[in-house]
Write a protein that binds this DNA or RNA. Structure first.
Length: 562
DNA sequence: ACCGGAACCGGTGGTTGCCAGAAGGCAAC
């Protein structure tokens, strides 16, 4: 699956063209990149059917470039641009505050090509010598460069999951493999993933390894052995495959799923009995094997209930499993509606009808449309007039699509309140409120908005972007107190970069507030992100009852109005 | 480079705020 690669290349081309001062093309490339990234289908299949131009934002020229890349493995146009300016544009622009134009200036002035070059230049105080750069920017570079480097190594769970699922599917389809399971932090649903580990059993290990290393996505084979092979996929993700014996599959699953702290904690229990647990199995003091084939069996012999992978972070799950108090975690099938999505009335790409049809197709009972309020110009915010127009459109579409559509707005929390009038709020079925900037008085602003407006959901409360932007420093104790009093739900945003509120805080406040797991989809494809949000809710120990949108729409309404 | 309305061409997201340097570029969303 080369979707991610193609979109990365298009984004880089956009950067290069922006540096050259070319008009319009960068936007076209970025739009195409975004649409490709949001695809749930393999772009190669679309290419094979000759339907590339049916993807939004892709016309004759871009379809040609995609074909060239898929067929030859190279794109001449891209290579030429890179030759002109041989820099790690993706890495460098990853630094907050550095865009394509700055990269060009740093290259011309100091010969900066990589993050390492830039770090050296900033440490040596050379950056200030370049026109347009001062102490402030140089300091900012030093502050943010480590994170930019890290972000190159770790990948976002949601961004690699289509690729990983694709690999899993392909290996499962082969006769050579008996059992296949992704393990590691991926299986635990951690928001960022380093390497991807796959565990398998196979009759013929050699043949299995051949098949794995021969997958078309595999770009480089680092190690190839009988029990372990390491590969790098074309998208830059390292994937390891381990093959174990059938009888050890369960204990190996536990071992390789981790987390390390969880395993240590479980092993404490094992030790107390004088037993031994390793990747090969659970053994008593005589060395007799007690369990190993399944995880259930291992946990069972230890007197624990099965611990779902999402909980294995050593935050009390081992004790809870012993006294039988583990939560009955929310599942994807429990979700009955999506309470925050955008349309082409603001910065979304889908129409009301397209989004509604997609949601209905996913089997949801309801959908709430909440485009950005007027002050968020960058996102093409709605005017009150637009809102009325949209209301009429929703009414028309509602008659024809098998889903209940709620009409809301994602109001922006600004100095002095929200960017929508109280009257406007009253006309909303569902009012979302969000911070989009980072003032010092964020906590106070949020609290006063919760007091003064009929807010239903506080969305992406921390405004974080994983691997690139820190969360807001706000007083969540006070905010969740107020949210609970006012019957305001707190969002768990399912966008791969967001996953905000984060799972640690979800766990902390789950007894107090209700959560709304929403996709914040800006295109039809992004509605498929729901599972990422559910995973984070699970990591936060949420049962279905903790999540508002597991309820029927009437119950949602009565909670929010209560 | 795409798209949509017209049958080839015109329009395409637009504003804010920061920094740096004293008017204006650049990044962010």
């Amino acid at each position: 699956m080369k979707n991610k690669e193609v979109s990365r290349i298009f984004n880089e081309i956009a950067d290069f063209l922006e540096i050259k001062g070319v008009d319009y093309k960068p936007r076209a490339y970025r739009k195409a990149a975004r649409n490709i990234e949001a695809l749930t289908e393999d772009i190669e299949s679309i290419h094979d059917r000759g339907e590339l131009q049916e993807i939004g934002g892709i016309g004759e020229a871009l379809a040609g470039k995609i074909s060239e890349y898929l067929e030859t493995g190279e794109l001449e146009y891209y290579e030429e641009l890179r030759e002109d300016l041989p820099v790690d544009i993706e890495g460098l622009t990853n630094i907050e505050g550095i865009g394509p134009k700055s990269v060009k200036k740093l290259h011309d002035g100091l010969g900066v090509e990589t993050l390492e070059d830039l770090e050296e230049a900033a440490e040596g105080g050379e950056v200030v010598e370049v026109k347009g750069f001062g102490e402030k920017v140089q300091g900012n570079i030093l502050e943010n460069i480590e994170r930019a480097k890290r972000s190159r190594e770790r990948k976002l769970l949601g961004r690699i999951s289509p690729l990983v699922q694709d690999i899993e599917r392909r290996l499962s389809g082969k006769d050579t493999f008996n059992r296949i399971n992704i393990v590691g932090s991926y299986r635990r649903g951690k928001p960022t993933v380093g390497d991807v580990d796959i565990l398998a059993t196979a009759e013929d290990r050699e043949e299995a390894m051949d098949e794995f290393c021969g997958l078309e996505d595999v770009e480089e084979v680092l190690v190839k052995g009988e029990t372990k092979s390491s590969t790098v996929l074309s998208a830059g993700v390292q994937v390891d495959l381990r093959i174990v014996d059938e009888g050890s599959f369960g204990s190996a699953l536990m071992y390789f799923t981790g987390s390390k702290d969880h395993n240590v904690s479980v092993r404490g229990e094992v030790k107390g009995r004088g037993w031994k647990l390793n990747e090969y199995g659970l053994f008593d003091s005589e060395g007799e094997k007690l369990a190993g084939e399944t995880e259930n069996e291992v946990y069972g012999k230890l007197g624990m209930s099965y611990i779902p992978p999402e909980l294995r972070e050593n935050t009390g799950e081992v004790e809870a499993a012993e006294d039988g108090s583990l939560p009955d975690l929310v599942e994807g099938e429990d979700i009955k509606g999506d309470l925050q999505i955008h349309t082409n009335y603001s910065d979304g790409s889908g129409t009301v009808r397209e989004m509604a049809e997609k949601a209905a197709g996913k089997g949801l009972e309801y959908l709430s449309i909440s485009d950005h309020g007027p002050s968020l110009k960058v996102a093409g915010g709605l005017t009150e007039e637009d809102f009325e127009e949209q209301a009429a459109e929703i009414e028309r579409v509602s008659d024809e699509v098998e889903i209940e559509i709620l009409h809301g707005v994602e109001a922006n929390i600004v100095e002095g309140g929200l960017d929508v009038s109280k009257e406007w709020c009253e006309r909303c079925d569902l009012l979302c409120a969000a911070m989009h900037d980072r003032p010092d008085n964020s906590t106070e602003r949020i609290l006063s908005v919760l007091d003064e407006y009929p807010v239903d959901i506080l969305v992406h409360p921390l405004g974080r972007k994983i691997l690139s932007r820190d969360p807001l420093k706000i007083d969540l104790d006070r905010i969740t107190d107020r949210a609970a009093e006012e019957h305001v739900a707190v969002e768990i945003n399912a966008q791969p970069e967001s996953l905000d509120l984060d799972w640690q805080n979800v766990k902390k406040y789950r007894g107090k507030v209700k959560y709304a797991v929403s996709t914040d989809a800006h295109s039809r494809g992004e509605m498929d992100f729901m599972h990422l949000g559910v995973t984070q809710a699970r990591r936060g120990w949420c049962e279905a009852g903790n999540v508002l949108n597991t309820k029927k729409v009437d119950k949602v309404r009565s909670y929010l109005n209560g």
